[in-house]
Computed example of a mutant assay.
Amino acid sequence: MSNFSDSGFEEDLQSPSPSKHAAVSWLREQDERLTADWHEMNYDESCFIIQQNNEEKFLALDCLARQPQITAEARCKLVSWLLAVYKHFSLSFESCCLAVNIMDRFLATTSVAADCFQLLGITALLIATKHVEVCSPRIKQLLSLCCNSFSREQLCNLECLILLRLNFRLAAPTLAFFLDYFISKELSWHRSDGRHGQIFSVHEGSNCNDFKPTEDQLSTMKRYKCFARKVCELSLADYAFNKYQPSVIVQSAINLTKDLLRRHTSTLEMVDLLSIGGHESEGSFNHSVTQQCTEELKLLVSLNQESIQNLLAL
């Protein structure tokens, strides 16, 4: 008679025979060895390498090439609206970035009518939140933001179609991932590397692991991260940046953020933060591509001065 474990797989729950003891022992040895290797591995760096290696596989280059009714301007308006929606629901930036990636990759495979474009946006956001968030927005809430122009059945049918066209490949590298990685690495590098200077002063003889930043220092960190994220949000809505890998956009956004904040700040701690050369990331970047992306981001920011003026004024 078949027996099933809690995992749902059929297993032999009887005591192992003598011939099985050797296999069990070997499996335990392998498990101990893998555990030891795992502890030696830097988890963050491993995730970064995996994500950077996967960037090209998830790029949606020229996703509007086969769209007779969807223009770059229409995409910009929809993504700008999605940026407002993710903030309305207090979702993570990761969800918004993943939603745009899902939408773009679907556009690269399937023609979409202009009157269904907004439905594609909220459906992509729903799929992204299911992949990232603990709790997703209710379908009723999403449809209400579209003035109930679409039905629940339409959204669910499109959701199935998107998943099929993308072959359920949802774990795309995003701007949010690389932004968190680069900034966290840079901040920890500045704080712990006494040879190059520190963002925040740590008393001599104290342990950096015990260091707790002050409210002013936390405000400095928050301002730096918020400005870099804002630049990334602007690039997310601009179709011209679809040709760049997310890691390149983020690296360029961080470089531009330092340059802009250095010109508009008199805070000593912020100057210390921006004056250091910074952490050299593990990834290999084409400096000419990064420079080109940075120049295009400068133009984009100059065209959106009103949206970033409050960040510069802090």
Rank of each mutant, 00 (worst) to 15 (best):
H279L: 11
I127K: 00
K87F: 15
L13H: 01
A72G: 02
N3E: 11
D210C: 14
L83R: 03
A84L: 14
T290M: 08
H287Q: 12
S275K: 09
L218A: 15
L261K: 02
L120N: 02
Q141G: 12
T123G: 05
S201V: 14
L261V: 04
L175T: 08
L64R: 06
P246M: 02
A36F: 10
H21E: 04
V202P: 08
S247V: 04
L273I: 13
I276A: 15
F117E: 07
L268W: 06
C96W: 03
Y43Q: 06
F106S: 07
K212Y: 15
W81N: 09
R105H: 09
E55W: 07
F9C: 13
E282M: 14
I199H: 10
L155W: 07
F182W: 09
T110Y: 05
E204T: 14
I122H: 01
E296M: 05
C76N: 02
D193C: 12
R191P: 03
I276W: 13
N148Q: 05
F106W: 11
F58R: 00
S192W: 06
E73Q: 03
M221Q: 07
V112Y: 08
L261S: 01
K77E: 05
L59T: 06
G194P: 03
D6S: 13
L155C: 14
S92M: 07
C135Q: 01
L98F: 10
E32T: 10
V134K: 00
S90D: 05
T174P: 07
N286D: 14
T257R: 01
A228T: 03
Q245C: 01
P16H: 08
K130A: 08
R191V: 13
H264M: 12
L64H: 06
S281P: 11
Q198A: 07
P137V: 01
N207I: 06
F227V: 10
F58V: 00
Q309C: 09
M1G: 03
Y181P: 10
Q30W: 14
K185I: 08
D62P: 05
H39S: 14
Y244M: 00
T110M: 12
L236C: 09
L274T: 10
T220E: 07
H190I: 11
K77T: 06
E295H: 13
E306R: 03
D210I: 04
F285M: 02
L34E: 05
Q251C: 11
I139L: 11
Y239T: 01
L164G: 08
T220H: 15
S5L: 13
D238Y: 08
T110K: 10
T109E: 15
C47K: 02
E186F: 12
L34I: 01
C156H: 08
N209R: 04
T214M: 06
Q154N: 03
S302Y: 07
V248E: 00
A253Y: 05
E295R: 02
D115L: 12
C97D: 05
D180E: 06
C160Q: 01
K140E: 10
K230I: 00
A313Q: 04
I139V: 15
N304M: 09
N148L: 14
